[in-house]
Structure formats: structure tokens, C-alpha cells
Design a protein around this nucleic acid. Structure first.
Lengths: 201, 201, 201, 201
DNA sequence: CATGAATGAGGTTTCATTCAT
DNA sequence: TATGAATGAAACCTCATTCAT
């Protein structure tokens, strides 16, 4: 009786809601939000539409849940590294590398995040933008701190540097392959290195 | 009174095919490819669906045309700067800055490009990927040249650096606003600067 | 007042899928497959398009279902008569007459069958052809048996005789009228008679 | 300069109108009337739509022209054989065989004829039906003559016999293959034979 | 004679969502 | 909790025909 009830791949091991979310995440990442039908999701999850609408108010809700998970995760981790007791260049390096690793480890979620953000309903979009802004500002504060204390070059707007780094993070979904030559940590180290070098005074 | 009947953007001034393409570009950039219906495009362009399908074989074709235009433009400009007679750090800086300026100047096209690439039909997708690869390789060659000649740091994969820079270019559509504090040229100079600094040995 | 709300043929008495199939059959027979729109079918059946596509994968599927029904019916009946314990000329006469009667009794289905066969999708067409061939061969075997045993003229290809008879069956949809002078059984007897006479040695 | 003007397959050898009709006939036979678009016809004939509508009032007209040609041909030939100076059984045999041969020799036209008859506009349909009726009656008269004079069995309605034979003619398009084992003349002889044997008193 | 751009109605199909059970 | 039949709007696309040139 332990583990799964039946033998097919989509058994009842995980609670239905989680299974639906995981399936939707995979399909959204593979095909895009608009190209994925509710029917596909429930078929792949082995449930019926009624079940989906029991747990989620709409298809849009599913997308929002994916966002929520990835946003909470990244914010927590950024706070963790930014609050550490270390020189600012170390804290920035750690934070910059960590977001790369967690992005790669959750590549499906982040692909969806960056590609489908503009497909949320207006109200949810507003909410997500607010959380994104908070994240951006925390990261920017690190850069500004370094600029104030003279360890980073100050002749460049901190906002631009944030977008510079997140551009490369955003882009990971386009080119990173699990079976490529670099491990997530190696990519992270290289990208953090590039950022820190670019900020050398 | 010059041109045609009325003064707004949707009169009959431009040939129908061009008008359709321009309208589609704008709507795709604003709403995304999937969210934009053929009906919306033809209504906004002031023609009927029949006219659209007279000039374009499918909705997919419209997207492909947008891509073609931006790809040709960027490849031409990259070739121009990469072939120049100047030190490699100058050629890379110019190319890196130029792609930022032209991306901002064609922000609708490039937004579509980066967001909707994966929504092309398989055959067209293949074709676009091939052209993208050619672009990528030309850019990478510049970096490798600098690494070989010792003017750029050699302890980082050139491929990764290309994706590093194009991440920030890709990202422009997400944050750049015409009415923001920085002109396209200023953004370009800053981003090229960041790249060149990151590559200092 | 038995059954459901109203007394006309399109109430909710029959399950929706059956009602759709019956309606489609009638309309295909009257107007042809291509000339009958899905909208006409659902309007006549008193449901919406969504309902039709809930039960049938495509318009093509509807046609295929009609075929399936008539093919199964005719094959069963042919097998029944061909397997009987009687002289071959009796078995052939019975089979030949029966296919005429059942064709007339299901004239809508068979009209569609003969007129629209070539409008099936390639894969379904292949399947139908295979079943038709099986039917043809069973019928031919009867003729060949009579030819071998000397009760039928042997100087004519059995294949041709099968097509000779089925030509007249095929043709029934073109000229037979319910209110004409001959009952289905009379037509069947005459046509079987013609076939048997033509086969006299 | 003799013959054709240019080297492609659809040159100007034949007058445009004839070329259009021949092309339409082939396409209608291959794909059916409804499945063949005017665009396909003009593309295959190497002209433009304007040209087609210059010569033919509508797509329907093309179909009607195909019918007209085959109807005139068959009526002429039937009249010729029926008016001959020979015993009625000879005249019937010749007419019955001839319609088979000319049907096979114009199989495209006759396929269209039998399959698409019901797709004519009401007025043209009426006209075609009238000509068909005239043909049918001429053929029936031969049978009745033989029945009156005792050379044919009289216990069967002459109308039914006509449809019996024309069923097999109608059916030719379904099974006859140019590369099959029987020549048109052989098929014709066999089918005429079957008819005459069936009519033996 | 012939062109081909443009029309506008209609084609089949998909889909998120609801609701009686 | 969960089902799945049914909705109805909207999607992309096709086509016979017209008309200014």
C-alpha cells in the first residue's frame, strides 16, 4: 500500500492538486501557456476537468500558482544571501550565482515565468509585477551599497546592472541544456564572475 | 491632404501587404502572437481576411516575415561592424552597442522575436534557428579572436559570453521604456561597457 | 406524451449521439457530404457544435460511422445467406435479393456509401476499402463455386459478375422511389432473377 | 512555331477554353467537384481566374459543360445503334456494348457525371435530367420492342432492365482500371452478353 | 481579352467553462 | 469530491465571385 495505488505512470501518489500543477508546469514550459489546453492537462494528469476546476478557479490560476512558487523561492533565497554577514562583493556574488542555479534547477517554471508573464489577467499581472519589483529592488540595493562604499564602479546606473544580470538569467531557458558541457554551478560561477568583473571599479 | 483620404495611421497610404505586416507587428508585440486574432489584425489594418490571406499564406507566415526582417537587419549590421578595420576590442564594442540600439529602435519586432520564436511551425522554426546560429557564431568569433590575442580574458567559454550579452539584449523588451531616463545610445554604451569590462583579462 | 417533451422527430427522445448520426445520415443523403455543413447538422439535431465534437472527432468521423453501420449489416447478412445449407444457385439468389432489400431499406445510408466513399480521409478510406474487398470476395466465391460445379456459365470472369450485380445495387439510390410501383421485395426478386438468368450456362 | 508556344506542360497549344475544360474534368474526376477549387483549376491550366470567368459564367457552368459533352456523345451513339437496320437483339447488344466502351474511354467525364450530378444548380439539374430521361427512354424502347416481338423475356419491367444495365455502366468508374486484365471492348462484350442472356425468354 | 487584388460569407474545429448528477 | 456532457464564442482559413485596370 505504500507509495502508489496503481501501476500506471499517473497514479495517485501525489495529491491531485500537486499533480495537476506539476503537469501543467511541464506542459506550459514545453508548449507555452496558450498552446496548452485544459483537456491536455487533465488527460496528462489522469483526472477530469471537474477535478481541475475543483482545485483551481481557472486556467489562469494555474499559471499564477506557478509564478507564486518560483517568486517565493527566489525571494527567500535572495533575502537569505543578501542578509548574510559578509562583504558586499561576496553577498552579491553569492546571490547572483544562486539565482542562476535555482533558475536552472527550476527551468520549467522560469521558462514559463519569462515567456508567459504577459498572459496573466490584468489583476494577477499587477500582483506579480509588485513582487517582481520587490525582488529587483533588493538586488539593486546590493549594487548600490557596493557603489557607495567604493567596491563597485559607480559610473553606471544600478538599475541597468540589475537588468543586465537578469537578462542573462532570463536567457538561460533559451540555451541551457541539461546534457550540455557545463553544470548549473559552473554556469552560475561564470555568470557571477562576469558580473563582478564588470563591476570592478 | 497628401497621400490619401485621412490622416490617421490606417488609411490606404501604404500598400495593403505592408500595412498588414506593420499592424500585425504592433499587435503581436502588444498582446503576443497567440492572443492576437487574425480578425483583430485585419480590422486594425482596415481590410478583410481575404486580403490578408491573399498576401500571406497563414498567420504563421506573418510571424515569419517579422522574423525575417529583423534577422536580416541584425545580420547585416553585425557583419558590417565585425568586418571593420579596427582592433578587436573596438569591433566588439561597436557590434555589441549597435545591436542594442537597433534592438531598441525595433523593439516591437524584437519583442516578438524573443517571445514568440517557439510558436513558429516546425519547418519555419528550423529555418529561423539556422539563421540565428549563424549570427551567434559570428559574434562568438569576435570574442574568440580577442581571447586568442590576449586582449580578452580566456578563462570563460566564448559561447557563454555571447549568451551573456544577448541575454541583456533579449531582456530590453521587458524593461526599456521610450520615456525612461536613458536614450538608446546611452543604454547601448553602458551595456557594451559592461561587456568589455567583464572581458578584461 | 410518451418519451419526451414534444412529438416531432427532433426532440430529446434519442441520445444525442444517435440523434446526430441519424440527422447527419439524412442530410448527407439528401445533399451530399461536402454540401452539408456541420452547422446544418447540429441545427437539425437541436444541439450545438460543441456537442457534436464531444461525440465525434470530426465531420469525417460521422461519415465513417455511417459506413461502419452499413458495412457491418451487409457483411452479416451476406455471411448468413452464403453459409446456408442449400444449393449454390439458391444461396446466390437469396444473397443477391437480400442485398437489394436491405439496400432499399437503408437507402439513405447506401446512397451516402456509394456517393461519398471517395471523400473519406485516406486512412479511413483504406479501412473501408479493406472491408469492402472482404464483402466482394465472399460474393465472388459463391459465383466461382457455381462455375466450378457447372451450374453457372463459366465463360465470364466472376469478378466482373460481382461488379455487374453491385452496379445495379449501387444504382438503386439513383432511381428507386418509395412511392413507385415496385416494392423492395419485387425489385429484389427481379434483379436476382436477372442475375441468375444471366448466369445460366 | 508549330504546335506549342512554350515548353511547359500547360502551354497555349489548345485554346484556353478547351484547356480549362479538360483540366477541370480531370480535377473533378480525381477529387470531386466540391473538393476542387477554381484556383486549382486555373493554376493547373496555367491561366488566371479572370480568364476562366471570361469563358464560363461560374464553376457550375464548367460542370454543366462536362455533362453536356458526355450526354451529347452518348445520345448520338445510342441513336446511331438504335436506328440501325438489324434485328432488335443485335441493336440492343451493340448499343449496350457501345455505351460501355465510350464510358470507359471517357471515364473521367462519366465518373463526374454519376458522382456529381446532384451538385448542379436546380435549373441545370432539371435540364440534365430531361436529357437523361430522353436517353433512358430510347434505350427502354429497344427492350420493349424485343419484349413485344417475343425475343426478350416479357415478365420483367423494361424500366428495371434499363436501370439494371446502367447500374453496371455507372459502376465502371468504381472498379475499372486501365492497367487491368480486360480491355474496354472485352468488358463491353461481357456486359452486353450478360444483359442479353438475362433477357433470354 | 485578361489580370489579380479584394471581398464577405461561410467552412471546420477548438476551447475554457458550467452544471446536473 | 468528482464526473463528463454540453455550451457558445471565437479561432484560423477557404472560396466563388467581382471589378478597376
Amino acid at each position: 500500500m505504500a507509495g502508489t495505488k496503481d501501476g500506471n505512470g499517473n497514479d495517485g501518489a501525489k495529491p491531485v492538486a500537486q499533480r495537476l500543477l506539476a503537469t501543467a508546469t511541464r506542459l506550459f514550459a514545453e508548449q507555452g501557456y496558450d498552446r496548452t489546453s485544459v483537456q491536455e492537462i487533465v488527460d496528462a494528469a489522469g483526472v477530469t476537468k471537474g477535478a481541475l476546476y475543483h482545485y483551481f478557479g481557472s486556467k489562469d490560476d494555474l499559471l499564477h500558482e506557478v509564478y507564486g512558487r518560483v517568486l517565493r523561492l527566489q525571494q527567500e533565497r535572495l533575502d537569505h544571501f543578501a542578509d548574510a554577514d559578509a562583504p558586499v562583493e561576496q553577498r552579491l556574488r553569492d546571490a547572483a550565482a544562486d539565482v542562476v542555479v535555482t533558475t536552472i534547477e527550476n527551468l520549467d517554471d522560469t521558462k514559463i515565468f519569462f515567456r508567459s508573464m504577459h498572459q496573466l489577467s490584468p489583476e494577477k499581472d499587477k500582483q506579480v509585477r509588485a513582487e517582481r519589483r520587490r525582488y529587483h529592488e533588493r538586488f539593486r540595493a546590493l549594487i548600490e551599497e557596493g557603489q557607495r562604499t567604493g567596491v563597485f564602479a559607480a559610473d553606471i546606473p544600478a538599475d541597468l546592472v540589475v537588468d543586465y544580470h537578469f537578462g542573462s538569467v532570463h536567457h538561460l531557458g533559451t540555451w541551457y541544456r541539461e546534457d550540455g558541457p557545463l553544470s548549473p554551478q559552473q554556469v552560475a560561477d561564470h555568470l557571477a564572475d562576469l558580473l563582478l568583473r564588470a563591476l570592478r571599479p
